[in-house]
Design a protein around this nucleic acid. Structure first.
Lengths: 163, 163
DNA sequence: ACAGGCATATGATTTCAATCATATGCAAGC
DNA sequence: GCTTGCATATGATTGAAATCATATGCCTGT
């Protein structure tokens, strides 16, 4: 189990076909790989998006503290509950069939935080499909493109959130 | 927050385009909707696949017990950690682009537990695509179809044929 | 300044799942 | 037994994202 002091880390997997699957993006203060607390082995790849500092937490120690300090355990429950919500949101995004709708939903979620290439991987789309969707959304006036590689919602839009 | 005494319940959402998204399938002994512990509101639809019994747990009570009983809190952490893994597996499945590969991965995971229609929704594919993939996999000898609507992984060949 | 690598970006073509259409089978209700 | 509704299942067609191809821009290193 890990704690991200600062920076941003993307947890990824690859499908058999070699496709990169973004699982979870951890930002400062997040914990990662909690299921490892209860498993002999747990595999996951992490890619730092920025300069990051990660603390590796001793599994036995975490389990001990959890057993003795209810407020620690409760905060861990809350972290995991929030992660569950994050995963649910990712599932919802991936379920959107139309690239255009998926892109605008991802933009509205604030997921375009770096390169469009990573944004595309985050959305499970090819980068070409994402650029095409972004171009169309710009032409339609639904988003704006202040500069190369920068795209923003064109007005404060409240997309219905899941929870 | 809920506890499923017996039966099977599928938590679902619908996309704006009206597509049904399976989120999580709870079976006997599972808890559901844990993020609700820390939210004012939490929306989710549940569909019972079988005759089920669900206990609704009082939020305040759960938080109190969590704060006083470390073993309860730890078991809740473990439940959520397992849910995180379940969601991760769903993301991996949805990231598989080819219907055929997605179907066989879903079969291998043991996800075909009822109707093929529900299996298709679980995989995020149209039922037609699923049946086509199943047909092809049967023709290719990778799976077997003992009866209408029943599909299973082929027995692994443990001894090379000597013919 | 130049070269190389990668992101940004777009167009053409291909692929394949969705959609549309249809037929059959099964179970429940009357 | 008959009707209805839905699951099972398949074929034809359509649509859109993936893939292939390419050009430009930016940044880093020499």
């Amino acid at each position: 189990m890990f704690f991200l002091e600062y920076g941003a880390v993307n947890l990824i997997r690859h499908t058999d076909a070699g496709q990169k699957v973004s699982m979870f993006r951890a930002v400062s203060g997040d914990t990662m790989a909690e299921p490892a607390l209860f498993s002999e082995t747990y595999h996951c790849d992490a890619v730092a998006e920025d300069s990051s500092s990660v603390l590796c937490l001793d599994k036995g120690l975490v389990l001990d503290v959890m057993a003795q300090d209810p407020s620690f355990a409760t905060s861990l429950v809350q972290r995991l509950a929030m992660q569950v919500q994050t995963y649910r949101r990712r599932l919802e995004l991936l379920a959107i069939r139309s690239a255009e709708d998926r892109v605008i939903a991802g933009l509205a979620d604030g997921r375009l935080t770096g390169s469009v290439m990573n944004f595309a991987a985050d959305l499970g789309l090819s980068h070409e499909a994402v650029y095409r969707a972004l171009s169309k959304l710009v032409r339609d006036g639904r988003i704006v493109r202040p500069a190369r590689g920068i795209y923003e919602m064109s007005e404060p839009v409240s997309v219905p959130r899941s929870e």
